[in-house]
Structures are given as structure tokens and as C-alpha cells.
Amino acid sequence: MAEHNDSGKLAEELAADWLVSKGYEFLVKNYRHSHAEIDLIMKHRGLLIFVEVKFRSGTGFGFAEEFVDSVKRKLIIKAADHFIYENDWHKDIRFDIIGVYRDRTGKINFRHFEDAFY
């Protein structure tokens, strides 16, 4: 597996752990429907939350939220619609982006963008 794939998987695990430490309930990792994938599906305060995780080893090329384009958003929404239907969910939902950043010293930081799109 390529190094960037390993970094992405690690970032997803770190983001899930970080969200759980903030009181979120972990439901699913890497949910797939057709060509679409949702990195994390969580619950928090009665909301079903679909999370896109982006890893960056710096901000020289931009912030994580800038890398979730309209095509990616549409795919995530398509997969979310399927998950909602499969699980007969009738409450509110939200789409978030978590930026996972590693600084020069190796320290991991998170940026959480709640209600990032729809």
C-alpha cells in the first residue's frame, strides 16, 4: 500500500479516536456504496454525522477543507443517502470535515469543520 494510503488510514483512526474523546459515538469506518465512500459515520447529540477525513503534513498546499470538491461532496451525499435508507434513519444529519495535520515536530493537530457542506 502506498505511503499516502497508510497516512490516510492512520488519520481516519486518529480522527475517530479524537471524536470519541469529544463524546461522539463511533458507528462505521469506510462505508462504501457504489463508487462512493464515507470515512467515518458517527452519532452525536441525536445527529447522524458523516465525516470526511483529510490528512496534511503541513499547510503549504492548502487546508484540508479545500480538498473536498463538489464531485467528492456529491459522492459522499450519495453514500449518505444510501446509509440513511439502509438504516431507516429519520432524524437530522450533518456533514463534517476533519483536517488531521502533522507539524514539523510530528505532533498531530485537528481542525473540525462542522456542517461543512450539503
Results as ranks from 00 to 15, higher is better:
residue 102 R to V: 12
residue 104 R to T: 09
residue 77 I to E: 13
residue 108 I to P: 02
residue 21 S to W: 06
residue 79 A to R: 04
residue 114 E to I: 07
residue 111 R to A: 05
residue 76 I to A: 02
residue 96 D to Q: 07
residue 57 S to R: 13
residue 66 E to A: 12
residue 111 R to F: 11
residue 21 S to Q: 15
residue 24 Y to R: 04
residue 58 G to S: 15
residue 86 E to H: 00
residue 16 A to V: 02
residue 12 E to W: 04
residue 73 R to T: 01
residue 54 K to E: 09
residue 60 G to L: 11
residue 28 V to A: 01
residue 23 G to W: 08
residue 93 I to M: 11
residue 104 R to I: 09
residue 33 H to S: 12
residue 96 D to A: 06
residue 78 K to E: 14
residue 94 R to T: 00
residue 10 L to N: 05
residue 32 R to L: 08
residue 49 I to F: 09
residue 9 K to Y: 11
residue 37 E to Y: 07
residue 98 I to D: 06
residue 9 K to R: 14
residue 111 R to S: 05
residue 93 I to N: 09
residue 46 G to F: 13
residue 81 D to F: 03
residue 39 D to I: 06
residue 19 L to I: 05
residue 96 D to N: 14
residue 57 S to K: 13
residue 26 F to Y: 14
residue 111 R to M: 11
residue 49 I to W: 06
residue 86 E to W: 02
residue 40 L to I: 10
residue 110 F to H: 03
residue 95 F to L: 11
residue 108 I to Q: 03
residue 109 N to W: 08
residue 47 L to A: 07
residue 66 E to P: 00
residue 3 E to Y: 14
residue 67 F to A: 04
residue 68 V to D: 04
residue 30 N to H: 10
residue 74 K to L: 11
residue 100 V to Q: 01
residue 53 V to P: 01
residue 16 A to R: 14
residue 58 G to M: 07
residue 24 Y to F: 14
residue 35 H to I: 13
residue 36 A to T: 04
residue 47 L to P: 00
residue 83 F to P: 03
residue 93 I to D: 01
residue 98 I to E: 08
residue 30 N to I: 06
residue 57 S to V: 01
residue 32 R to F: 12
residue 14 L to W: 15
residue 14 L to T: 04
residue 19 L to N: 03
residue 36 A to F: 11
residue 58 G to L: 06
residue 63 F to V: 04
residue 97 I to L: 10
residue 93 I to T: 15
residue 41 I to L: 11
residue 92 D to I: 01
residue 28 V to L: 06
residue 61 F to P: 00
residue 83 F to D: 03
residue 32 R to S: 12
residue 9 K to T: 08
residue 10 L to D: 06
residue 57 S to L: 04
residue 101 Y to C: 01
residue 75 L to V: 00
residue 78 K to H: 12
residue 102 R to G: 00
residue 90 H to G: 00
residue 46 G to D: 09
residue 78 K to W: 09
residue 17 D to M: 11
residue 77 I to C: 02
residue 90 H to I: 13
residue 99 G to M: 10
residue 84 I to W: 08
residue 60 G to R: 13
residue 54 K to F: 10
residue 61 F to W: 11
residue 47 L to K: 15
residue 4 H to A: 02
residue 50 F to C: 05
residue 62 G to A: 10
residue 21 S to H: 10
residue 17 D to A: 10
residue 80 A to W: 09
residue 14 L to F: 11
residue 3 E to K: 15
residue 51 V to L: 10
residue 94 R to N: 08
residue 82 H to G: 00
residue 7 S to H: 12
residue 83 F to V: 03
residue 1 M to R: 12
residue 45 R to E: 15
residue 30 N to M: 07
residue 93 I to S: 10
residue 23 G to T: 06
residue 57 S to P: 00
residue 89 W to T: 04
residue 28 V to C: 02
residue 79 A to N: 07
residue 85 Y to D: 12
residue 75 L to E: 13
residue 24 Y to M: 02
residue 5 N to Q: 14
residue 68 V to I: 15
residue 26 F to L: 09
residue 97 I to S: 02
residue 91 K to L: 12
residue 51 V to K: 04
residue 43 K to R: 15
residue 69 D to N: 15
residue 1 M to N: 02
residue 27 L to S: 01
residue 91 K to C: 03
residue 75 L to R: 15
residue 9 K to W: 04
residue 94 R to W: 01
residue 78 K to L: 12
residue 36 A to K: 08
residue 117 F to E: 03
residue 51 V to P: 01
residue 22 K to Y: 10
residue 40 L to S: 06
residue 40 L to P: 03
residue 5 N to D: 10
residue 71 V to R: 14
residue 3 E to P: 00
residue 22 K to L: 15
residue 107 K to V: 05
